[in-house]
Amino acid sequence: MNDVPTDDATRDTFVRLSGLIYADAGEAAIYQSIVDSACRLVDGCERSSLMLRQRGQYLTAAATDDIAARVDEIEREVREGPCLDAIMDEAYQHDTDLTSGTSPWPRFTERVVKETPVRSAIGYRLMLDGGKVGALNIFSDEAGRLTERSADQGAVLAAFASVALMALRAREEAATLRLGLQSNREIGKAVGLLMAAHRVDADGAFELLRSTSQDLNMKLSHVAEQVVRGQESQYGGKAPRDRN
């Protein structure tokens, strides 16, 4: 595919999408913005969907409409089509005319032509950390409308979509790290409070937390949080003093 310079409209769209990502918008909102942008940025695109692979299963994470979602559903039902091939075999799949009778996905095209108005499709693989995680799909209701230029434009958006997935993954990992640090702080507080309250060393206090966690079938961090809240409530926000 040829390089396609991004015009002002494309840059503005990417700026808005980037703003969503770094403003901590939810995954669903970001996915929806990507497929909606396809209709504005890709010549001939009338519908779009985003299919992701999670735990070995394929799901439609976003679609511009019910028809785009139905095309994805047909692919999953017949287990063939441009999206699945883009994910598993080739990075890019383009069929300009699903009615031509020459499609490499005969079961898919038969169902799509019979059940939907879609007549042309492009699928782009989305990568994350070197892994195949999904596909961006572009559809048109008119055969031949998705040209090579359309394919180039869609490739730019697909590349951005992969970057968006990476940003979401990084944000999720950062949130997990923050949660882990918070949990560790709560456990540390609880250990200190139990050491003072029960006159035990750090190992003894941690073992008390651990055994209570098992007895109550609660996460260690949750038990620690309850200990901290209980002790602070009892002692007015201060740890009990060792009177020896």
Results as ranks from 00 to 15, higher is better:
186 E>W: 03
11 R>D: 09
224 A>G: 04
220 L>W: 06
63 A>D: 03
177 L>K: 12
84 L>P: 01
75 E>G: 05
163 V>N: 05
133 V>E: 07
53 R>M: 15
3 D>C: 04
168 L>H: 06
206 F>R: 14
241 R>H: 11
96 T>N: 03
241 R>T: 10
97 D>R: 02
140 S>G: 14
101 G>P: 00
141 D>N: 11
208 L>M: 15
92 Y>M: 14
151 A>Y: 02
173 E>K: 10
107 R>G: 00
53 R>L: 13
241 R>K: 13
136 L>I: 08
242 D>W: 10
193 L>Q: 02
37 S>Y: 00
237 G>H: 05
81 G>R: 02
57 Q>F: 07
174 A>F: 00
61 A>F: 04
61 A>L: 04
99 T>R: 15
150 S>Y: 09
87 I>Q: 04
6 T>A: 13
196 A>Q: 06
136 L>W: 01
116 T>S: 05
238 K>I: 09
82 P>E: 05
143 A>P: 01
5 P>F: 08
125 R>Q: 06
82 P>D: 03
215 D>F: 08
92 Y>G: 07
83 C>M: 14
18 S>M: 08
91 A>Y: 14
76 R>Y: 15
232 E>K: 14
26 G>N: 10
170 A>C: 09
184 N>W: 12
74 I>K: 00
183 S>N: 13
219 K>H: 11
10 T>L: 03
147 T>L: 13
90 E>Q: 10
124 Y>A: 07
117 P>N: 11
144 G>N: 08
171 R>L: 04
128 L>S: 09
226 Q>N: 15
34 I>Q: 00
129 D>I: 01
219 K>I: 01
128 L>N: 06
137 N>I: 07
90 E>N: 10
14 F>I: 05
75 E>T: 10
20 L>H: 05
217 N>P: 05
233 S>D: 14
157 L>D: 00
55 R>T: 07
40 R>G: 06
54 Q>I: 01
159 A>L: 07
42 V>E: 01
